[in-house]
């Protein structure tokens, strides 16, 4: 298991939207590889693809408001050697163009990159229609697809660069709001490799996206109660880093998953599918429980929908009771 000391000062953390990291990663990918092209869907600035467009106008293709066509055209471009980045709001990209992603892109294993913007409830005031809470489920079930949910802007940039360099479909999920930058330019990142950002022996909190930060805050709080919580940044939901996750479960004997997404089919489901078969331990899941989002201030919504450090800490206390009961039964 790779350990990474983030050297965080919780009183002094900068914030930056993950969409900025995507935009920066796309520009840098464009500089590295002349075959990288970007497809715009009328929300170009909102998803930070304008940064690429302004640098590489001849490699930017405006598609208009047509997600299915956007994915299909990207598929065609990939067949001419291009590395097309399709960027759209996650709800519309993963949802509306799902069949195109499934049959045209994934079945043929085409080299198409999907940037799913505005992931999660933290989109805020736009409300349920624009808050993507299902993409991880419906993307990770597709053969040949890779799914990445970076923790912050720096990591989103690295994930975008990594996606451009490997062959095959990749879905990168990022958000609209500013989130704490917990990693820096030098923090190691490998697609498919989860890493431990806090050591612990009582429970493993396995998180992705902004919930990695929330889990770190929860772990600080729990430490005051004498609970030693390990925190894993599980940025790559597919393919899972089975070795690291199984080791985390084996060492701690209890798991909490945390994600800004429906618990049905999401990152937590992926982890528990693995652990149930390879290292079953008591588990609790933090996420959205079978409801649509609504309009509101992002911070209010995160609290209302149970997606804060408080909820993670509560889940840890619950799972530790389960762990204790399980031990007692064995005795």
């Amino acid at each position: 298991m790779r350990m990474v000391d983030l050297k965080l000062d919780f009183n002094n953390i900068q914030k930056k939207p993950t969409r900025d990291g995507y935009g920066e990663g796309l520009v840098e990918s464009g500089a590295k590889n002349p075959n990288v092209v970007a497809l715009g869907a009328d929300i170009t600035a909102s998803v930070r693809v304008d940064w690429f467009r302004d640098q590489y106008l001849d490699r930017f293709i405006s598609i208009g408001i047509a997600e299915q066509n956007q994915v299909g055209i990207a598929a065609g471009l990939s067949l001419t050697g291009k590395v097309p980045f399709v960027t759209n709001y996650g709800v519309f990209l993963a949802g509306r163009a799902w069949d195109q992603i499934r049959t045209t892109v994934c079945y043929a294993n085409l080299n198409v990159k999907l940037g799913g913007a505005h992931g999660g409830i933290s989109v805020g005031p736009d409300g349920a229609t624009h808050q993507a809470l299902e993409e991880i489920s419906i993307m990770r079930c597709l053969p040949n697809m890779k799914v990445v949910v970076p923790a912050d802007s720096n990591e989103t940039k690295k994930a975008t660069l990594a996606a451009a360099e490997i062959y095959g479909p990749v879905y990168i999920r990022f958000g609209r709001e500013k989130v704490p930058s917990i990693t820096n330019e030098d923090t190691p990142f490998e697609l498919g490799e989860a890493y431990c950002v806090r050591e612990g022996t009582d429970v493993a909190i396995i998180a992705c996206g902004v919930m990695v930060y929330e889990s770190l805050v929860a772990a600080e709080e729990l430490a005051k109660e004498g609970i030693r919580a390990m925190v894993i940044n599980n940025h790559t939901v597919k393919p899972l880093d089975a070795k690291t996750l199984i080791e985390a479960a084996r060492v701690t004997g209890a798991v909490v998953t945390a994600e800004e997404h429906q618990v049905a089919g999401g990152m937590g489901s992926a982890v528990l599918e693995l652990l149930a078969q390879s290292c079953p331990v008591p588990a609790k899941m933090v996420g959205v429980y079978d409801r649509f989002g609504e309009s509101g201030d992002p911070d209010v919504l995160m609290k209302e929908f149970g997606l804060t450090s408080v909820n993670v800490a509560d889940a840890v206390r619950e799972v530790l009771k389960m762990k204790k009961n399980a031990v007692n039964r064995e005795e």
């Binding site: 299909g72 598929a75 065609g76 001419t80 045209t104």
Partner: peptide
């Protein structure tokens, strides 16, 4: 040339190939 069978998708793919060919000056 392409996998398919879910109707309505081929013309988008063909359009993408045509755009890529033009960008590559082929």
């Amino acid at each position: 040339e392409v996998s398919g069978g879910s109707l309505g998708q081929g013309l988008s793919i063909a359009t993408g190939i045509a755009l890529g060919g033009r960008m590559n000056q082929e």
